[in-house]
Structure formats: structure tokens, C-alpha cells
Simulated assay, not measured.
Amino acid sequence: MTSTAVVTGATSGIGEAIARRLAAGGRSVVLVGRSDERLDRARRRILGTVPDADLHTERADLSLLADVRALSQRLVTEHPLPDIVVSNTAVIAAVGDRTAEGIQRTLATNHLAPYLLLRSLADSLGDRAARFVVVGASPRVLKRIPVDLDDLDCANESGLSPVPALRPFLCYSRTKNMNAMFVHALARRLEGTRITVNGVHPGIIKGTGLSARLRGPQKLVGSALSPFFPGPETGADTPVWLAVSPDVKGTTGKFFVAREQVATAPHTTDPDRCDRLWNQSADLVGLSPAPPSRVPDER
């Protein structure tokens, strides 16, 4: 049976490189992105290097919970159930930038979207084996920026930094710590299943488009050093390795950098903190805090 992989944020940068590598390995790949036009361009670029790639596209704006819910439903009704899901979509948005649903955009895209998507898919996978890979950020850097569990959406802007230009990046950093906390919490709740969940820092990579929504000095801060960083193919290496390698079969709840397991900060693995974030996130996305139910696979 053909392996099916889902890659979010697959229209450029690391996500497109991940999708290309998975397709080159003979897997059917579902590319997820916000724009039909960008999805089509990414699909054509991948076919240009992997002519026999089995590619499918799904348009969804992952800053919108309604789109995430609809996407998760389509992924289990209109495609073979995935055995690989790479959550790669991320953004650095102005702290005051809120979606049409009233949620701070960085929080919605970087944390609530993978929380809702992966929980929903886990609920549908039953006893099937799958690997969930969450693309995060540097544990070394994030150690100094714990999540404020009383201010998930960074409403207290002055509490982020006295320097306004830095605030979007600190808000982003908090959401990346949320990713590590989510990996830890979801893995605990999926113990005894055949689904593994791991986080990965792909490195500091150029061409990611993370700061595309920023303007002025904040835009300059986000792009000044980009030309000196390695490209998306380098960033795709460890996420793809986590998704397919027999070396990490059965490994779950861990975080990796350059194919090496690394520790994340104690504030990202503390069970009480992780449970509190889990419960608050469940409330924000409209799910029960209970772990995914184990539904037998009847396919």
C-alpha cells in the first residue's frame, strides 16, 4: 500500500523541499497551502525534478480554525489516511494582527493549527501507524523565552519587550515553545498507540517567508541575515529523516536537531504546564481536553 504524507506550508521553502523529498521516495504527497496559484506552482516545480511524483493539493488558510477543521475532514474522507504528517506552516505576524476569527495570527497559525489538525487526525487514525513531525525552532534560543500561560496571544505587548520591533519575534518564539510543549503532551496522550509525535528544529534557513507579513523595521530585522543562511534542502533533511527513517521507528515525544535528539527547556516538558496549555488550547479550538479516542480502523 502506498504511503501517504501530508505537508503543511508546502508551497515554498522548507515545506516544499520536504514534499519533494517525500515524493522522490515514492510516497503520495498532499501539499497544503493558502493559495491555489501557489500550490499549483509548487506542484509544477516538484514535478520538474520528480516527474513521476504523486501529488495532490489542498487549499487551507491555517490561520483560520474553520479551514483547519475542514482540511482535517477532507484528509480523512477524500484521501487515503496519512501515515506521515509534517506540520511545517509558521508565520511571524505583528502582535496586533488578528484573524477574522479574532485570534492573534501567530498563535493561530503556529500553535492552534497543528494542535487542532494533529489531534483531529489522531482521532481518525484508529490503530494505524503514523508519524507526526512538528517543525519547531532552536531549543537553545527558546530556553530563554518561556510561554506566558496567562497571555497566550501576547496581548501584553510591553511585557514582551520594551523594543516594539522585537515583539513579533518574541511572540513567534513563544509559539515555537508551544510546539515543543504540544509534542510532549500529545505523545503522552498517544502512549500505547502506533502514532509517534516528534519535534524538529530545521536550522536557520533562508527562503522560508516567515516574516512576509511584517513591515518597516520589523521586516528588515527578519530578512537582514537571510542571505547568509543555508537553503531549504538543508532544512528539510531532519524532518524527512524523522518521517521515514527506521532509525527512529517507535521514538516519540522527542525533539531533534541535525538528526540528533536534544533536550528542550524544562518549562516545555513540565507536565503541569503542558497540561495547562493543552486545556487552554482545547478551549480555544473547541475540542474536549480528553485525549483522542481510539477508533478501530475499518478501511
Rank of each mutant, 00 (worst) to 15 (best):
V135T: 05
F132Q: 13
A129R: 08
S223N: 15
D153M: 05
V197I: 00
S211Q: 13
P164M: 01
R128K: 09
I205H: 04
V135W: 04
H184Q: 12
N179Q: 13
R189L: 15
S161E: 00
S120I: 01
F228L: 13
I204T: 14
V183H: 01
G235D: 05
A137V: 04
A185I: 08
V133A: 01
L186S: 00
G231W: 08
K219S: 14
F182K: 02
P239M: 07
R188M: 10
P162L: 13
A130Q: 05
E157W: 04
L152E: 04
M181V: 02
L160N: 06
L142G: 09
N156D: 15
L220V: 11
M181L: 03
A224K: 15
S226E: 15
G203I: 02
A180Y: 12
L214W: 05
A185N: 10
E233H: 15
V183G: 09
D127H: 14
F132M: 12
I205R: 01
P202Q: 02
D148A: 03
L210H: 07
P168K: 01
L118H: 08
F228K: 09
D123L: 07
L125F: 09
I205G: 05
A129N: 06
D150A: 06
R188W: 09
D153S: 11
S158N: 15
